[in-house]
Write a protein that binds this DNA or RNA. Structure first.
Length: 762
DNA sequence: GACTGAGCCGTCGAC
DNA sequence: CGGCTCAGTC
């Protein structure tokens, strides 16, 4: 291998701080880089890669670098290219855990009885398959749902457990002991379908490595350096996979932050990072603690909060950016008031010449977004929602893919079943279950069984002729596909199958969007030369680029905010039950609470200049109003970094809002001892029983709307009012705090009473 | 086989 | 509240 005259003064190394430099230069042996929020983690990772390449310590093909998301992999690829001056010839083993595992599995698939063309099933396929298995086993599908079994199986796979490794007890988690049997059945169905689920990608790799040392040896020889990003998010299977591969060179570098581990619910084990030094003997640990992102107050508030966690390695972030704004905490009356106040803050920010792109609102649960969206639409503020259902998970895209899968393979039962009656062709559940029964007894695929069965009288009438016509279409498409471009073929199939027509006929507001998505799909396909190439990537690698950058407020969950930063960050909904989420606490107890706290830490540390926290005294949960208490996390913020703002007067003159703030202020002043004894915590303990039950019912069983304040408008029908955006108008109707107003210029609009004034008082 | 309404239940969501 | 599933009806 190459010469080892390692340069320490190359351009790309300049500007690194001592710890970063050490992390880049420590190429030999196991290394854990504990990179706090905003400490230049990505820079270290990419510089380290560039350093290894630049000094010819390894060829690009000898470096394994794994990330969790495609986005992270893409960014790393780009940034290494930039650091190296664009001359890096691809890094073939840079990718997500899953895409690299898939690549390895395609090479050795025969060792686990798969063909290298295996299909990767997503969660939806997985659940549909499990539903069939549960039904076939004669288990009550309502008591034992496919969803629950899928979660169990995923959990086992995340822990690296194949069915034979499970203890007898494990099976009792499902249908009185049938869990393991069902898991086995599921795995053998997958083999028959020549398919794997996401968990299998890693698990099959592990099996192959463990049973075939010769194969593992090949990878040991290949990978001289291993790099892992976001190590705190790895699950046991990923850890095992990594450890097997690292046994070769032992040059494994993991970068992560135990304080930002927020994916426990999908199998991440913080323990992996906490245990690194034991797992990789002789490991070096480097802490990156100098923060380049946030001001002193933001860091102070975040650090103070996270200090309440026990299970952590411990870091002390510092910055040279002294002073700045304190983190603000504001009590508001309810969700709509929170949205109103935050929207006002944003307008104010914008009016000072700053941009909407600088602003993010980070919520715990996506349902909290609604108040904000309503308010933004009302005010005409531009915003984008980040996250949410992803392009390739949408029903119309999955349907289109199912057509393509059928085109490609006559044994893809799940795809066949999905589209055989979509759009409706008159083939109902009865016919489909007949086909399944036939397929099982003949031991052939659904499509084959269908071809046989339509020649019998098992299925008659409309269903039979529809099936026959459908198969003729499929045959024709397959013939045409041989000499037709794949994008054109896709368009033709969607058209001739009646699929696009189905959405055109649909009057739902979303159907136009679905048609647009189908057009985007064709464009995405066009980026690949063949259907095969496209399908290969579709389940793992493809994600849609966000559209052109406009000046918009970002609205997202705390989870999707990890890794991002914004000058101004709003953190609404800091209330017990909402955040920390009651469900996390119920399901995972203290570990759940600590993960919630890390989520809070992630939230605050997204802010560069200002972080603004809000809690509401009343919140509508599943339709009924509940009163709520400030989150214990509010009490845990160190007071010297916090401002309790008294903004009420500026917005919606409400004595109650003032009172909420006073009350909060008092609690806050006394709250600097441990979280468990703080007034907020105690009030919560005292009241939680009544708070988390369902809304009380009156005698007739109607939910009692607990009017938190007399939520009745102060305005009367006919009264003349003024609105800052819409001008003057007359009240047509009142509904609680909502007013329907006929504005003289803007026409009829629904507005909140807090946003209008009496015309006589203007 | 397809449509309609009652009942249920609810985080976060990469690959 | 609202989206989804399932049972009952045409």
């Amino acid at each position: 291998m190459p010469v080892r005259s390692v340069s320490t003064d190359a351009d790309y190394l300049s500007g690194l701080n001592p710890e970063q430099l050490e992390a880049v230069m420590s190429t030999d042996g196991p290394l854990l880089v504990l990179a706090g929020a905003g400490t230049g983690k990505t820079r270290v990772l990419t510089t380290r890669l560039a350093h290894i390449l630049n000094n010819r310590l390894a060829y690009p093909s000898q470096i394994l670098s794994v990330t969790f998301t495609n986005k992270a992999a893409r960014e790393m690829r780009e940034r290494v290219g930039k650091t190296m001056g664009e001359e890096v010839e691809g890094l073939p083993w840079l990718g997500t855990f899953h895409s690299i595992a898939a690549k390895i599995l395609r090479i050795h698939s025969e060792l686990v009885n798969l063909k290298s063309s295996f299909t990767i099933l997503d969660t939806d396929d997985q659940i549909r398959l499990l539903k069939q298995i549960i039904k076939a086993a004669g288990i009550d599908e309502k008591r034992w749902t496919a969803r629950y079994l899928a979660a169990l199986i995923d959990g086992w796979k995340n822990k690296g457990l194949t069915p034979d490794k499970l203890g007898a007890d494990d099976g009792f988690a499902f249908a009185d002991g049938k869990g393991i049997e069902l898991y086995k059945t599921y795995q053998s169905r997958l083999t028959v379908l020549n398919a794997v689920d996401f968990g299998d990608l890693l698990l099959h790799n592990i099996t192959i490595f463990q049973k075939h040392p010769d194969v593992l040896k090949r990878y040991h020889e290949r990978f001289r350096y291993l790099l892992v990003d976001e190590y705190q998010d790895t699950n046991v299977a990923q850890y095992l996979w990594l450890r097997l591969l690292a046994q070769g060179s032992n040059n494994v570098c993991c970068v992560g932050d135990d304080d930002q581990s927020i994916y426990g619910w999908r199998g991440a084990e913080v323990d992996n990072i906490l245990r690194f030094e034991q797992d990789f003997p002789g490991a070096k640990v480097i802490r990156l603690e100098r923060n380049y992102r946030s001001t002193e107050h933001i860091l102070g508030a975040a650090s103070g909060l996270i200090a309440a966690n026990k299970d952590r390695l411990g870091k002390t972030l510092w910055t040279e950016d002294a002073g700045g704004h304190k983190v603000s905490v504001t009590g508001v009356w309810d969700g709509p008031a929170e949205a109103r106040i935050i929207a006002g803050e944003i307008e104010n920010w914008k009016s000072k010449g700053r941009s909407y792109n600088d602003v993010a609102i980070l919520v715990r649960a996506s349902r909290q977004m609604r108040n904000f969206e309503e308010r933004f639409i009302q005010l005409g503020l531009p915003y984008r929602v980040i996250g949410g259902p992803r392009f390739f998970e949408r029903a119309e895209i999955r349907d289109a893919h199912a057509y393509l899968r059928v085109l490609r393979s006559d044994t893809d039962d799940l795809a066949f079943e999905r589209i055989v009656n979509t759009p409706k062709r008159g083939i109902g559940a009865t016919s489909i279950s007949k086909l399944q029964q036939a397929a099982r007894s003949m031991n052939v695929s659904l499509e084959h069984a269908t071809r046989t069965i339509i020649r019998t009288d098992e299925i008659r009438g409309k269903a039979r002729s529809a099936l026959r016509a459908f198969l003729l279409d499929v045959d024709r498409w397959r013939r045409e596909a041989e000499d037709t471009k794949h994008t054109e073929m896709a368009e033709r199939i969607l058209d001739e199958s009646g699929y696009t027509q189905m959405w055109r006929d649909n009057k739902d507001a979303k159907s136009q969007g679905r048609l647009d998505n189908l057009k985007e799909l064709i464009i995405a396909m066009g980026e690949f030369d063949t259907l095969e190439a496209y399908m290969e990537h579709v389940s793992l690698v493809l994600d849609v680029e966000s559209g052109p950058q406009e000046d918009e407020i970002s609205l997202m969950t705390l989870h999707s905010a990890k890794g991002l930063e914004f000058p101004l960050v709003f953190l609404p909904g800091w209330e017990e039950g909402t955040f920390p989420s009651q469900r996390s606490l119920d399901e995972s107890g203290m570990a759940g609470l600590e993960e919630e706290r890390r989520l809070a830490y992630v939230g605050i540390t997204r802010a560069r200049e200002m972080a603004k926290i809000y809690f509401a005294a009343n919140r509508q949960v599943y339709g009924s109003w509940q009163s709520s208490l400030p989150s214990r996390f509010v009490d845990e913020l160190p007071i010297q970094h916090v401002d309790v703002e008294s903004e009420a007067g500026q917005y919606n003159p409400s004595r109650i809002t003032d009172r909420v703030q006073e009350d909060f202020g008092r609690s806050f002043a006394r709250a600097q001892d441990s979280g468990r004894t703080s007034p907020g915590w105690q009030r919560f303990q005292k009241n939680k029983d009544q708070r988390f039950g369902r809304a009380p019912k009156d005698i007739e069983g109607h939910a009692v709307r607990r009017p938190a304040k007399g939520k009745v408008s102060n305005y009367n029908v006919g009264e003349r009012v003024f609105h800052t955006k819409f001008g003057y108008g007359a009240v047509l109707e009142t509904d609680g705090t909502k007013l329907t107003v006929d504005f003289e210029k803007a026409g009829e609009k629904m507005v909140l009473d807090g946003f209008v004034q009496r015309a006589s008082e203007v």
